[in-house]
Design a protein around this nucleic acid. Sequence first.
DNA 1: GGAATATATGTAGTTAGCTACATATATTTG
DNA 2: CAAATATATGTAGCTAACTACATATATTCC
Lengths: 160, 160
Amino acid sequence: MEQNEIDASGLLAISTRLQRLSDRIRKDGLLIYKAFGIDFQPKWFPVLYTLYKKSTMNVVSLSDEIGYAHPSTISLLKELEKEKLIRSKKDKVDTRKRLVELTEKGTALLSTMEPVWDVIIKATAEITNTENNLMKAINEVEASLKEKSFLQRAEVYIKK
Amino acid sequence: MEQNEIDASGLLAISTRLQRLSDRIRKDGLLIYKAFGIDFQPKWFPVLYTLYKKSTMNVVSLSDEIGYAHPSTISLLKELEKEKLIRSKKDKVDTRKRLVELTEKGTALLSTMEPVWDVIIKATAEITNTENNLMKAINEVEASLKEKSFLQRAEVYIKK
DNA sequence: GGAATATATGTAGTTAGCTACATATATTTG
DNA sequence: CAAATATATGTAGCTAACTACATATATTCC
């Protein structure tokens, strides 16, 4: 009975719990980079990693690739430009487009990060690889949301 | 190979993914309350639900109960007071303490919410109850973090 | 080939938590 | 019992994403 109540309340507060877990992991992530003497923020990862893998991209494709709204990407790019980790140039064919790529400094940084990532991946795997694997759970939830949104699912029960 | 790369990158971006999932669920949550014609924000849930269950509490115990930093609770209480859903009074024994409780309006609102919660719980269960259950995964991850933090786990690998 | 539409980028302001610091009152202890 | 410490509350400002809106350039279509 009590157990059910805890579960119910947990489900109702799920967004809050996700957010707090995210915060916590991010903060420790920052400290891990620091422990390696690397000046790197976890939030930079999706943008930089994508540019590392795909070399040159414009703002919108980059945003789509990492799944961000474009203003979020723009503000990250602004920071990264200030850090001289990336640079931009105009696309000569389609002048609306801003092409973004890593600088030499950026490439150098990213290539020194492989050992750090290794550690982070191992530590994260250790933490998340419990009976219900968090990464897999997120993937599964994202898949079920893609199929039918939270709201749509709720509507079925409302109409009953 | 490619699969491993996706996993690695996923683990490295885990905080971002958690945050975005949280946002998405919260936004739909708000719409579900709206669909019931109820003026209620998902972020209010932990505070109001706790007051509903425990009647009167001071700020710090309430924060501890829901696992928030006290300034977060204070700012929620401020909103809820403006909505006239809660009220506060001084503790006569320990005058430092501010005792918080639901108003009649608050109690009335909460008691009309049971059917909404039912729907939310069902829809959430539908979404999260995949092979790797998200709620359980969060609980497990929080338990493993409590035992040994992300940073501490990383340090073991750094020292190697 | 010009008008209507679509796409790319950018800016401003919001959100929901947080930490760091400040202050007031209680409690403990020499 | 006064000084030192601990606890409760409060304020200010940060963060990392978002939406809504604005503008510039491309593309499409009559």
